[in-house]
Amino acid sequence: MSHLAPEELLLDYAAGALPEGPALAVALHVALNPVAWRTVQDFQAVGGALLDSEPAPAPDEFALQRALATLDSTPVEAPPVPPKAIPGFEWAPAPLLPYLGSAPRWRKQLGGFESIPVRLPGDTHRVEILRLMPGRGLPQHHHNGLEYTTVMHGGFTDSTGSYGVGDFAIGPGAQDHEPIADVDDGVPCIAMIVLEQPIVLTGPWGRWFNPLVKRGWL
């Protein structure tokens, strides 16, 4: 049973209404989950039908001439080849590659996990790729804002269920949650996390770290 993004989120994505962070989380979900992909295709068909049904404005001959004048110097491009995988990052779906740079590096974090920050200059969401070794957990925490999670490799389990490759989870965790990477796959769990606001750590030691989290140091 796969975990799909809520339909209204897929619609906002198909309509181009999501900020870059959540849009990237959904793009990864769509790239890995055929049902989400199909749903977005259908929504895009709705967009196409709406575009076609616009009351016909008069053709703009001047704009057409201007466009035609540029075509000689504008080649029709060959279809794109899928981008080359980065060694060690073969699990990364195509939409993620432009954000990884040429030589991404995992950084060890307090709490026993690793991460790669993803910088989105035009968006206030905090975006990170997390890697958890099998059986390892994230510190117990809850969210002030929305949290979008897309699993890209392995899987994890928390109080809300088990999530595998292509699954999408959306918080606010009304209650604290403590995701633990699944052991069965024998591979680390790698997921993209998009946070509206810094998370709040709630475990016995976690509170101490909150000021650091707020400053974006953790």
Partner: peptide
């Protein structure tokens, strides 16, 4: 114009693709 060769009519209608 530039991406015309990437259009696949079995995947999406023209209006959808242009949208």
């Amino acid at each position: 114009w530039r991406k015309a060769a990437s259009f696949d009519r079995t995947r999406a209608a023209a209006a959808t693709w242009i949208y």
